[in-house]
Design a protein around this nucleic acid. Structure first.
Lengths: 135, 135
DNA sequence: GCTAATTATAGTAATTATTATCATTATTGT
DNA sequence: ACAATAATGATAATAATTACTATAATTAGC
């Protein structure tokens, strides 16, 4: 159930996300959408950003410092987080060897790449076993 | 200045980190070290975990859900986060092409790998320019 | 185009993770 | 042993996010 119902606030949030490359935090989105909807609440922004991410219409980027970032681009691409100012930038990268990945990334990026961290998402052995029992 | 001074609490925290593969949160470390030091405070655990990470004697792993995880292993390796239970596991991986990385990761992991996210760390173009001005 | 059903919102309170403060305690160089 | 200084424990404060709830907006059926 729980059929999705249109809301201007959500439309505005999505439009803002699609028209920026800033990888804004929820609070930044809030401040911008507030210009069109002065009474919008931060909770509404969070709810809709997470909703868009769950529907695959946005990406949520977990960062080591400050709040989570959101990205309207849904195609797979990498991000660079600045260890100096915390800004998140896009980085295009199609292939390469893991051992060379930092150098490779560095060559494809206007700034400087020192290191990277990669997290895989999936099921741990125990949950994989449990999921097999259920089906 | 600020010369580092030995503390039994920090030694115990480090020892615990080196002897587990659980990638514990600060709170989990706290609960374990509390058995040896019943009066230890959570702030002390956070302070020392961050100190160890800053000194390169531990790794801090930012996760999308729940608190940050800590790892006593300092050699470069990947992590898998379970989308089901949130557990963080080690994953060994030496090389491979980006496009094949999920399949490759899946073949090297007992559970199941569905996707991954990689974040590069470095300096954005503006901060890189600024750092050049300073030197 | 109304009306009823239901989802979304704004405003606020609550929660979670983490850091800051500070008086007291522990460590260390002399 | 003592003085200097770093670390601790306890607590308060902060930041990011989620939960709650009465009201408002949207939509499907008539």
């Amino acid at each position: 159930m729980a059929t999705l119902k249109y809301s201007r606030q959500r439309a505005s949030i999505k439009e803002y996300l699609l028209n920026t490359h800033e990888h804004p935090t929820a609070d930044t989105v809030y401040l911008h959408v507030k210009e069109e909807f002065p009474n919008i609440s931060l909770g509404t922004v969070y709810r809709n950003l997470n909703l868009l991410a769950d529907m695959g219409e946005a990406q949520k980027i977990t960062t080591p410092v400050g709040g989570d970032r959101f990205d309207g681009r849904t195609d797979f691409h990498y991000h660079v987080i600045c260890t100096c100012c915390g800004n998140v930038s896009d980085l295009e990268l199609s292939s390469g060897h893991i051992a060379e990945i930092n150098q490779l990334a560095d060559r494809h990026f206007d700034g400087r790449v020192d290191s990277h961290s990669m997290i895989f998402h999936g099921l741990c052995p125990e949950c994989l076993r449990n999921s097999r029992k259920l089906s």
